[in-house]
Design a protein around this nucleic acid. Structure first.
Lengths: 205, 205
DNA sequence: TGTTTGATTGACACTATGTCAATGATATAA
DNA sequence: TTATATCATTGACATAGTGTCAATCAAACA
């Protein structure tokens, strides 16, 4: 247990504890009030620290929230980094379905936090940038898969891999937000099946 | 020219003029500074009115912006209300392409304003609601088209019309924002062709 | 001409932000 | 043990924006 909190000098221990208190209070305040209505004053009050203390550990509200998002965002990166090498059309279809489910389920498992994330993306350019990073990672990964499928003559070659990946991810992302914001409007399985059918086969006979 | 401005009592004329000044100044300030950084103080300064005057005509910044968006949003409604009755697959393909182009081109024609709209959607729930209204109108219209195509045995019947319409519009909308925000990243025609091909035929052979 | 009506105004109360000089507690050295 | 250095903590302050409202001013009307 090297570097564990309880072998640090008491002063650093205290500092870490203060930071943790602020993070915990921050999460509570954000979940209760949403991003815009949350204020530093509410956070320091809940954390029982002085006003200036919050600014010692975080540049501003955005930075505090970014720190809180980090874990969740890393989970998205993990999902984005799972490439797959489809063999036949039927295998591809199942693989794609599984990926979509992983993505949507992750968002739904952290539904309350994701609601705040959505709001924060709209308000803070820094946070928007973070999300765009994740989006581009997904798109890049999907482009690779499409190129591979094309090289195997499984996928149509007159489609641009990057544009196709982008359009496909956009649908997924927007359905994700829709499910996050309106829990009971759609069945997740219906969404997954329909998305995947559309993606692999298109609308027209 | 009944109800023209210059036959109204001088007092109402003056009031209308003040309102116009505020709208003009508002548009300039929003285009210069974006939604969040724009302040009422900047607007009244540019409009050369007293501080309180802005609040006589508009409840707050959001309402002022909504008034400024109205024209543009009505143009989107118009595009959303153009249904089509595809006959054969090839005709459908061309019709869809034309619709996508209308939608993307409208956004690009008002590119600067649309940038501010995007920001405002993220910040103001009222404005977000306005945009969602447009989105749902599009989705409804597209659902009708899909149902019609299915009834004609042109389109696959194992696809849910609403979910399919939604996914399809999401791709279009997100590409629209992408084109609005990053002028030179993609060629509009490439986007249109790829979107339409994906939609009608899917990715896999 | 006097009175009423309604458009306009800016001072005010309020809320939030981010900074910084002062404070106080811990670590270090003598 | 004591003196000193270090650094976490603090809240008062300057700043910036919001929305309100009582007072003012000019047009409409009698």
């Amino acid at each position: 247990m090297k570097n564990s909190i309880d072998q640090l000098p008491a002063r650093q221990q205290q500092a870490l504890k203060t930071r943790q208190k602020l993070l915990k209070a921050g999460k509570e305040v954000f979940l209760e009030n949403g991003f815009q209505k949350a204020t530093i004053s509410q956070v320091i009050k809940k954390a029982e620290t002085g006003y200036g203390t919050a600014y010692v550990y975080f540049k501003n509200k955005d930075e505090l929230f970014i720190t809180l998002m980090e874990d969740l965002m890393n989970q998205f990166y993990k999902v984005a980094e799972m490439p797959f090498k489809p063999q036949a059309k039927e295998v591809a279809y199942e693989n794609i379905k599984r990926q979509v489910r992983l993505f949507l389920q992750l968002a739904l498992d952290e539904r309350n936090m994701m609601k705040v994330v959505k709001e924060a993306i709209g308000v803070s350019p820094e946070i928007e940038e973070k999300w765009y990073g994740i989006r581009e990672r997904f798109i890049e990964r999907i482009s690779v898969d499409i190129r591979y499928a094309q090289s195997q003559k499984l996928a149509k070659e007159n489609l641009d891999p990057v544009l196709t990946a982008r359009g496909w991810f956009y649908s997924n992302e927007m359905f994700m937000w829709e499910l996050v914001m309106n829990e009971e409007k759609y069945q997740i399985d219906d969404v997954i099946v329909n998305l995947t059918r559309m993606y692999t086969g298109g609308l027209y006979e």
